[in-house]
Amino acid sequence: MTNPIKELILKFGIPSLAIIIIIVHFGFACNKNLSKWKGGGYGMYTDIHYYYNKIHISGMSVDSLVKDNDEMKETLGTLMLMPNKSNLKKSGELILSTTQKDSIHIQIWKPVINSKQGIYSRELIDEIHLKNTDF
């Protein structure tokens, strides 16, 4: 005779793992602003891709910062994927330590579409002012 608990685990154990991953995704999406496209939440094609988020740093070019710098590429990439205060701070600290500047102002913007009027604009998600004495 089959053990009912074992049977239940074998039938629903793996699907339950999938549900746990989805709950984790929603946790990160709500608390850390994780993109719907990633993290196992099956939310691809529901929002404009995070690739269209725009990092704006006053007086600096993002392209030149990431050029030949893998750590910078990864940190700013993570900021695009999960635009939140903590990632803004991490990016700011890395940029300040790399460029030897005294202070920095970083903003992260997301695209906003108005399909009725056919307009593409941008909305500020978050920003941070950081001095090299802050960390």
């Binding site: 989805i22 939440g41 099956y42 094609y45 529901t46 404009i48 579409i113 399909s115």
Partner: peptide, 22 residues
């Protein structure tokens, strides 16, 4: 079903803005 929920919860998707842009 999760994909459906994600779509229903996305204002950008429900308004048609996402498909319009894409």
């Amino acid at each position: 079903i999760t994909s459906v929920f994600q779509k229903l919860m996305s204002r950008q998707f429900i308004s048609g803005d996402f498909y319009y842009f894409m």
